[in-house]
C-alpha cells in the first residue's frame, strides 16, 4: 500500500482510504519517538527543505524533527534569509532549490495556492505546511490522529470548530477531513468571520456557540489573531472572549467525555480559559506529539518507495 502521489497539498484532494493509510502509518510511527534512540534509517540520503515564508516555530520544528527521525537531512529556509526579500519570484526560487536536488520541499506561505504552484515547478515532492487561508493538511491529520486515539473512531462524531473560520486554513482542512471520515462538523464564529458559502463544504454553520457545543464530542478552538480587531472583524478582545471564548460554563453543553483541541499557540484567557486549556479534556500537548508522527508518516509515504514512472 502506498500513497500514489508526488505531493501532499491538501485534505480536499485526498480520499478516505488515503486518509486512513496516513493515519494508520502515523500511529505506527509514534513508537519511534518513544525509543531511547529516536531515529530510524528509512530515509537515509534524502534531503528535505523546509521553505517557510511565514514565521512558524511549532510546525517547522515538527517537520524538521520528523525528517531527522527518519534520517533525512533537513534544511530550513526562512523568509528573512531567503531571496524573496530580494525580489526573486517563486518560480526562480523553486528552480534554484530544485537544482540542489532535494527530495521534498515543505512550504508555508501566506498566499493560498503557493504550494500548488511550487509543485508544478519542481519534480520533487511538495508538502503544504499551510497556505494562506486555504489548507493546512498536516495539522488536520494530526488533529484526526489525536481524536482517533481518544475516541477509537472518526465516524459518527460531533465536531465543533469555533473561532475565526474565514481566515483559518486549519478549519478548512479539518472540515474536509472529519466529514470525509463520516463525522458531523459544525463551525461557529462571529458572522464577520464566517466566509460566504462555507456550508457548501459540508458542515453546519452557526453564530451561536452554545448551539455548536451542544452534544459535541470534540471541540476545536481556533486561535484569534489580535490584528483582526483593527479590521473590525470583532470590536474588542474582551467581547470576543465573552461571547466565543471557551470556559467551563460553556463546556458543560458538550458531552461529558468531550475532548478539546487547539492548533496553538494559544491566547490564554481569550479563545480558551486557562483552566480549560490545562484541564483534563485538553489534548493540546498530545496534538504536538502526534504532529511529529503524522509528518514522519507523510515523509515515509511520499519518499519511502521507488518513484512512479
Amino acid at each position: 500500500m502506498r500513497l500514489k502521489r508526488k505531493d501532499l497539498l491538501g485534505i480536499e484532494d485526498l480520499t478516505r482510504d488515503e486518509l486512513e493509510l496516513i493515519l494508520s502509518t502515523a500511529a505506527s510511527f509514534k513508537e519511534v519517538s518513544e525509543r531511547e534512540i529516536k531515529k530510524v534509517p528509512t530515509l537515509r540520503g534524502k534531503t528535505v527543505i523546509n521553505l517557510f515564508y511565514e514565521p512558524s516555530t511549532r510546525t517547522r520544528t515538527s517537520f524538521e524533527i520528523a525528517a531527522k527521525r527518519m534520517s533525512a537531512d533537513a534544511v530550513n529556509i526562512s523568509v528573512s534569509t531567503s531571496s524573496a526579500v530580494k525580489g526573486e519570484t517563486l518560480r526562480d526560487t523553486a528552480r534554484n532549490l530544485e537544482a540542489m536536488r532535494p527530495d521534498c520541499i515543505v512550504v508555508r506561505h501566506s498566499s493560498s495556492g503557493t504550494p500548488h504552484m511550487l509543485a508544478g515547478y519542481v519534480g520533487c515532492s511538495v508538502v503544504n505546511a499551510g497556505d494562506g487561508a486555504h489548507e493546512h493538511p498536516s495539522q488536520a491529520l494530526l488533529d484526526m490522529l489525536t481524536v482517533k486515539e481518544k475516541k477509537g473512531t472518526l465516524s459518527g462524531l460531533k465536531i465543533a470548530i469555533v473561532g475565526d473560520i474565514a481566515h483559518s486554513r486549519v478549519a478548512r482542512s479539518n472540515i474536509y477531513g472529519f466529514t470525509k471520515m463520516g463525522s458531523e462538523v459544525t463551525v461557529a464564529g462571529p458572522p464577520t468571520m464566517l466566509p460566504a458559502g462555507i456550508e457548501k463544504l459540508g458542515c453546519r454553520v452557526t453564530s451561536n456557540v452554545e448551539d455548536a457545543l451542544r452534544g459535541a464530542d470534540v471541540i476545536m478552538m481556533l486561535r484569534i489573531q489580535m490584528e483582526r480587531q483593527s479590521e473590525s472583524f470583532f470590536p474588542t478582545v474582551r467581547e470576543y472572549s465573552r461571547v466565543y471564548g471557551l470556559d467551563e460554563a460553556k463546556l458543560k453543553r458538550a458531552k461529558e467525555d468531550v475532548i478539546i483541541l487547539h492548533p496553538g499557540p494559544i491566547n490564554r484567557g481569550v479563545e480558551i480559559s486557562s483552566e480549560v486549556a490545562d484541564g483534563p479534556y485538553s489534548l493540546i500537548l498530545d496534538q504536538v506529539t502526534n504532529g511529529v508522527a503524522v509528518r514522519m508518516a507523510i515523509f515515509y509515504l511520499l519518499l519511502g518507495a521507488a518513484k512512479e514512472e
Binding site: 500500500m1 502506498r2 502509518t25 505506527s28 530510524v40 515515509y300 519511502g304 518507495a305 521507488a306 512512479e308
Partner: peptide, 22 residues
C-alpha cells in the same frame, strides 16, 4: 521486531510495505 523501516530496498520497491507491530 518490525524490520520495515530498516529495509535496504525501500527506494527500489514500488509497492511500499506498511508498518507492522513493533
Amino acid at each position: 521486531v518490525d524490520a520495515t523501516l530498516y529495509r535496504d530496498d525501500l527506494g527500489i520497491k514500488k509497492d511500499q510495505p506498511s508498518l507492522k507491530r513493533m
